[in-house]
Structures are given as structure tokens and as C-alpha cells.
Design a binder for these strands. Structure first.
Lengths: 245, 245
DNA sequence: CGGGAAGTTGAAGAGCGTCAAAAGTAGTGG
DNA sequence: CCACTACTTTTGACGCTCTTCAACTTCCCG
């Protein structure tokens, strides 16, 4: 329900392996894992791996969308901007998440790596062809899209109706859930994104985010060992602060 | 791109006709319109029409989602609420729009009619079965979901980063586009929803919405003949007020 | 180390929310 | 047809949350 990214997450990601398809969103859908050797070879001939350092633009809002991507390693943010530079981060993407699902022929948002990242890249025409041949792939994508819509609506509730304190607490709970999905403790939250990114995700300013972090910390609800990590000390208090739906 | 509802819109709606399938979202996808007599009869035996007066709850967030719906006539709002009553309208749905697309077995939002409305109702198991048999139906739904995600992200940008004035102007432009889709003039906007609904959609209060309406009106950007209608007098000014992306 | 970016803290101000009341609108029944 | 009532919308005054602007501190990476 309240998933972390606005883009579709395929699965709690497992540690990266050698075969690029192993961590690919396409992997765990039977349509792909059940491919015969021929189809599999054909697929690997179509996809191309993409590696990018941290803070690299993968594609930009408005440019022709000729590829779709799956994150296989690293963390990515997707965002939209207004002419004057105001920015809204619409999601943080983790391994297994899918980018490029959109309705016409241009990207609806920009995508930028936060950490060094690996992608599985697929030309859009190839995806279309693949979808026609592999009904289970389309089924899977529809499920992911459906899940993403629910997450987007949850985010709208946050942006439209929650206070700064509630937004930050909700964000920490989402991050905590993501940590659980990665097999780590829910208490230890890794935050690979900057305070500015968090602010742009929550519709706040960095100053406000910082103040609310400090506030939660001084109330001993959380602890902040360093800028990239948060420990939850008191989950019930954090739930209350988030104003659970 | 900036579509009006967060749910998927299938087509600009045409005046309602006698055959319920004519205005159904399922109608205009070849998969359905190309059905043979047998399949068609089977479909009509599965779907059931639903009529509801104005301001009726169709389903509520959290309850078991045993049906999906298509709006065939009227206007519907979908929304999420917090425990204390704060509400976020996530979309206004018009004929052709689809409700009930979600990831697990409960509705992710509530749905309520604004006007008297007609629905085409389909049990979820039946939908699943149908999707397996009609690949083009799934293709169509994926396209609708994809479009909906783009709209949701646009709304996040509005909620997270736009001023009250920009939100109201953006809302009027969306409504204007919807009017065009209905074959009416872009200048004459019908607003079947209350100021409270608009406020809950824009993350504002009714007072603020009212003030911004008045402001735009006194600047001769719009005219407000009555509570349910708005005329655009100056589109360039409205675009500027919306702070075009 | 040292310089620059990122994050935190403080003070002041703006925009929107809240509360309250008036005006307008719609529905009902005499 | 009008009057009465209840609700929605508008308008006004005030207060609060979050933003803005600025200074200071911490972190990071050469």
C-alpha cells in the first residue's frame, strides 16, 4: 500500500548477482524466467546494460522516450520541475523498480541517480513487441502500475493534507518499510538522498525538513548518527507523528 | 498529459446511448467491440448496470474490493481520508473512467457520486478471467494506468510546489480541457463539484478557493455566472496564473 | 589540513488556515 | 408564488505554520 517509490517496485530486491537478468524486474515474472534458451538469448540481445555514476541524469522530462529502464543496482530519483526551478520529486527508485512507463512518446519526468547505479535498458519498440508475445509480462506491468497508482494517491494525501511533522514521520516510516524489504532492520534507515531531495519529495524546504528531523530526534523518537542514517527509537511515537491514516 | 482525473479516462465521452456497452470503457477497445456474438452475450451476462443518485457512496476505502466499475454517465469523486477527517480528493471521474484498479484486495480509496450516475459493474474474478482471454483489454488497461500515473505525478507537482493561485488556475485549465473532450467550448467550464470538493482536490480550504476564484474574476481572467459554471475570459492570463510547467 | 558544499539554527515575514459572520442559493411546503 | 429554512459560498479579521533570508556549523574530498 504505502510503498516508497511512485514507480513500480517489482520485488524486495535481493543482493546483486552476476546474471543481469537475475535482479531484473523481468526476471521474477514467470514469463521471463520460464523463457526457453532461444527467447532468453533473444532478450539478452535486445537489452543493454547501463552504468552511471552518482548524480547523473539518465533522461529528462520532455525528451523523446526511446527506452525504458529497470534499476538493477543503486538508487534513483524521478522528478518534475516548473519553469522557475521549483522541483517535485515523485519517487525514489530502488533495484527492481521500473522507469519509463508513460502514455505518449516523451518522458513525463526526469530521472537522476543518487548513488552509482546499474540499469537494464530496453528500446521501447522492443518492449512493445515483447509485451505482445509475453502476456505475463504485460500482466506483471499492469500489477506494478496498479500498485504505483495506489502509492501515488497516498503521496497526494501526504502532500495535500499532512503537516510538515506528519510528512517527515511518514517519510521515515516509508523508508523503514523499504529497509525491511531489503532484509535489513526496520530500525536502521539508510537515507541515500540529500535533505534537499527529501524536501522536494515532501513538498517542503530543506530547512523545515531539518527542523523536523531535529525535533523528532530531541523527542527521542529517532536518532541521527549521521546525515545518511536514521535509527528509529520509538515506533509508536513515529506512527503517531505520522498521523496514521 | 495534464488529464483531469487521476483515474484512467478511456475516451471523451459521447452522449449516453441505449446499449450500455456503447459508452463503456470496454467498448472502444477493439478487444471488446470485435467480440463475436457469443462472447458479447457472455460479457453482458457478467456485467451488471448500477445507478446511483447524487452524493451516494459507491464503495469505501478499505472495504473488500469485489467489483470494478466503469462510469458510463455522471461525475464521481474518489478520495482518501485521514482518521481525523482530513480528506484528499485524488480525482474526478467522468464517463469512460475506470474505478477499482488496485493492488491488493481492498479499495485504496472511496468513491462517491457528485451527480446522478450510471456504472458498468464487473466482479473482480470475472475481470481477471476476462483479462486472460482478451489480451487487448489488458493492453488497454495498462495504457490507461500509465496515463493515470502521469496525471498523478502532475498532481503531486501541483500539491507539493504550486501556490494557491496557481493551483486554482491549473484546476480551471484541467476542467477546460475536460470540457473540450466533451465536445463543448473550452471557455465554458462546468463545475459539478462543490467548493469543498475542489479544495480537497487542491489541498486547500474552501475559503482560499473562493478567494482565488474571486481574485481571478476581479482581474477579468474568468467570469463566474453561477456556482456551477466558470467562463474563461483571458486564456493567456490563466496560463500565466497557472505557472505553466 | 583547507575549501566548498551540505546541513543546522535563528529571526522575521508571507501566505494560507481558522474562526466568525454575512450574503447568496436551493429546496420545501403553505 | 412566495416565504421559510438549511446549506453553500463569500468576505473579513486574526493567528499560525512554513518559508525566506542569513549566519553558523558540520561534513566531505581533494
Amino acid at each position: 500500500m504505502s510503498q516508497f517509490s511512485v514507480a513500480a517496485r517489482s520485488l524486495p530486491h535481493s543482493p546483486h548477482r552476476t546474471d543481469p537478468c537475475e535482479t531484473c524486474a523481468v526476471h521474477d515474472i514467470a514469463a521471463c524466467s520460464s523463457l526457453n534458451a532461444d527467447d532468453r538469448r533473444r532478450l539478452t540481445s535486445i537489452i543493454s546494460p547501463l552504468r552511471a555514476g552518482p548524480h547523473r541524469l539518465i533522461f529528462e522530462e520532455g525528451e523523446p522516450a526511446d527506452h525504458v529502464f529497470t534499476v538493477t543496482d543503486g538508487v534513483v530519483k524521478i522528478y518534475k520541475t516548473l519553469k522557475d526551478g521549483r522541483r517535485q520529486v515523485t519517487g525514489f527508485l530502488f533495484p527492481g523498480d521500473f522507469l519509463g512507463l508513460l502514455d505518449n512518446n516523451v518522458y513525463a519526468y526526469s530521472a537522476e541517480t543518487l548513488t552509482p547505479a546499474h540499469f537494464c535498458r530496453l528500446p521501447r519498440p522492443a518492449l512493445e513487441a515483447l509485451l505482445d508475445e509475453l502476456p505475463r509480462l504485460r500482466q506483471r506491468l499492469l500489477g506494478m502500475a496498479s500498485h504505483e497508482i495506489a502509492a501515488a494517491q497516498e503521496q497526494m494525501l501526504l502532500l495535500g493534507r499532512k503537516s510538515a511533522r506528519e510528512r517527515v514521520a511518514s517519510f521515515l516510516l516509508m523508508s523503514s518499510k523499504a529497509a525491511l524489504g531489503d532484509g535489513r532492520s526496520a530500525k536502521a534507515i539508510a537515507l541515500p538522498m540529500s535533505r534537499t531531495d527529501i524536501a522536494d519529495y515532501l513538498g517542503l524546504t530543506t530547512e523545515t525538513v531539518s527542523r523536523k528531523f531535529t525535533q523528532l530526534s530531541s523527542q527521542r523518537t529517532i536518532e541521527i548518527p549521521d546525515h545518511g542514517h536514521v535509527c528509529v527509537l520509538n515506533f509508536p511515537a513515529l506512527w503517531r507523528a505520522a498521523g496514521a491514516s
